[in-house]
Design a protein around this nucleic acid. Structure first.
Lengths: 132, 132, 132, 132
DNA sequence: GTGGTCTAGACCACA
DNA sequence: GTGGTCTAGACCACG
């Protein structure tokens, strides 16, 4: 799996990293229980400070996406927890996106079509050849 | 229109303000060409510094949601521009949301249902009772 | 002669007005010794405050583009004065424009071609049919 | 590279700063990818507030002259973008300068000569003695 | 150590 | 009266 970091973006590096890994897990590019690269190794690969990678891993751990074992390192969690708080957060994100779409004169059909396309893309259908 | 600011949140005040106003425009709580409150007036109402409000207004202006008229102050723009760059940004936001949903074992049906609900909510259907 | 004012621009209205009138004089749309519209009349036409028009006229008078007669009102001056200070100002403006052009990878030929085109345009060649 | 700020001038400090840096980039006094001084460092050198420098840097970033890297700070951009909008802006600047020149009885030859001189000066030919 | 954010207060330009 | 500009200082996020 390839992770791209843009050091010129306004969003913090650890957040970009966290987002990329979530995308990777959803697309099954990071298999369940597969160990993630070590903090120092990934930091070296990306050319960033290992504290930054550490922070991203901590966030992912707090959100339940990964589990961190002191000996085995980080690995993808079986399933993410705390789905109630998550639904509230998801709803907020989507409401804002929808509001932005409405302001840009996008009707419901087009918005839902975009949502569907993004879901498919996130699932990695295009990358894996569709059906599994 | 009521704007709520959470000073406890980690996200910057100007960003919260920007998001609230976008939601307000989408829900038609802020009519087209309706003047927004003055920078200092809104700041006083919210109990925050006027520079913070100013930054939010500047962002909204850059994004094309509002225009700042020298005579009448800030007002809702007729229509937001630069839809090409917007589509790319929207797609990125939705892809991340979709990935998070997938990690939480949400299937496509449920995700799309949530998207639809959020679109309706953003449009203010729930608030106005649907048809008028 | 048509004057266009953009109340949503960041540059002050009186400056826009001043620039438009200078362009008009150069293009001979405002003939020598022709009286300019009255301060209050022009303000009403443009839908702006007459203090704003007044300020623009004062600037033009200070720069020598027009003369203001208490009885006859404002009119185009025979010739602009203070050419030494002007040359310095012009050089400064052009140097900055040239620097911006260089940063955008524009070579000398293209820059000079653009300068020539702008000079012709300012002289109103295209509008008046070329020769006089 | 030496930056001079005139606190007596009517034009805002951040604009003067922005212009000086553009001139510096064009004259190659600031090499490509060379890091600019830090916001607070430059502010201290110039004896002005760091917010003022920050605003100038933000403008330059928006215009594509510099990029702000999270690790290395601000640096000269490889190449400025959005040349279409730029050409329109450049044409407007030059037209106004040309109009002013015409009002001061400057003929086309003299105007173009001045443009050429300014281009050379901006490129830094005069400073380096022409050929190297 | 660097930039980002927020607050606060003063002055001026603008309409 | 409104926004724009500049200054100043404090705190935190980031790397």
């Amino acid at each position: 799996m390839i992770i791209e970091i843009n050091t010129q973006s306004t969003s913090p590096l650890y957040e970009q990293l966290r987002d990329q890994i979530v995308l990777g897990i959803a697309a099954k590019k990071l298999a369940l229980s597969e160990p993630l690269p070590s903090v120092r190794g990934l930091a070296a690969d990306l050319g960033i400070n290992f504290h930054t990678v550490n922070k991203a891993y901590s966030m992912l751990c707090d959100e339940g996406y990964i589990v961190i074992d002191r000996r085995k390192g980080a690995m993808v969690a079986q399933t993410a927890i705390d789905s109630k708080a998550f639904l509230s957060k998801l709803s907020q994100q989507l409401s804002l996106s929808a509001a932005e779409a409405i302001c840009h004169d996008m009707n419901e059909c087009d918005f839902i079509a975009t949502c569907t396309a993004c879901y498919q893309k996130a699932k990695g259908v295009a990358d894996n050849g569709g059906s599994l």
